[in-house]
Amino acid sequence: MASIFTKIINREIPGHIVAEDENYIAFLDIMPLVKGHVLVVPKQEVDYIFDLKPEVLSGLHLFAQQVAKAIDKTIKCTRVGVAVIGLEVPHVHVHLVPLRSIDDINFNRPKLKLSKDELSEIAETIKSGF
Rank of each mutant, 00 (worst) to 15 (best):
S58E: 11
L52T: 13
L96V: 03
V80M: 06
V56R: 09
I13K: 05
P14V: 07
N106C: 01
Y24P: 14
K111V: 06
E88L: 11
L33E: 09
N10C: 08
V18P: 13
N106G: 00
Y24V: 14
P110R: 04
I8C: 00
E20G: 09
V67A: 06
E121C: 06
V46G: 08
S101M: 13
M1A: 02
F63P: 00
V82K: 08
K69L: 02
S120N: 09
V34T: 09
D103H: 01
K73N: 12
T6P: 08
L39M: 11
K113E: 03
H37F: 07
A70L: 07
M31A: 12
V56N: 12
A70G: 12
Q65I: 00
D72M: 03
I4S: 06
Q66S: 14
D103L: 05
P14W: 00
V94A: 01
E45A: 09
V41W: 14
L33P: 06
K111H: 03
H37W: 14
I75P: 05
K73R: 15
T125A: 02
D72T: 10
I4N: 00
Y48D: 11
R79H: 15
L33Q: 03
K127T: 09
V84E: 02
I126H: 00
P54E: 15
F50K: 10
V38A: 08
V56Q: 11
H91Y: 12
D103Q: 14
H16V: 03
V80W: 09
V92E: 15
Y24D: 11
D117I: 13
K43T: 14
I8W: 00
V18F: 01
A123W: 02
A70K: 05
I122P: 01
N23K: 07
A2F: 15
V41G: 06
D21P: 13
E12M: 13
I85A: 10
P98F: 08
P32G: 12
V38E: 06
I4W: 08
K35P: 01
I75E: 02
L99A: 02
V92K: 10
I71Q: 01
K43E: 15
F130T: 02
K111E: 06
P32R: 07
Q65R: 02
V18Q: 08
P98M: 15
S3H: 11
V56P: 04
L60W: 02
V40F: 15
H16R: 06
L114V: 06
Y24F: 15
G15W: 08
F107S: 12
I122S: 04
A64C: 04
M1K: 15
E55A: 10
I75A: 02
S128I: 14
I8V: 00
R100H: 09
V18H: 01
G36Q: 14
I25E: 01
K53F: 08
R109C: 10
H16P: 02
S58A: 04
I9K: 07
H16L: 09
F50M: 10
H61I: 03
M31H: 14
K35G: 06
N108L: 13
I25C: 03
D29Q: 08
E12L: 00
K43R: 12
V89A: 09
P110E: 13
V34H: 01
R109F: 15
G86P: 10
K7E: 07
P90C: 05
L114G: 05
E118Y: 01
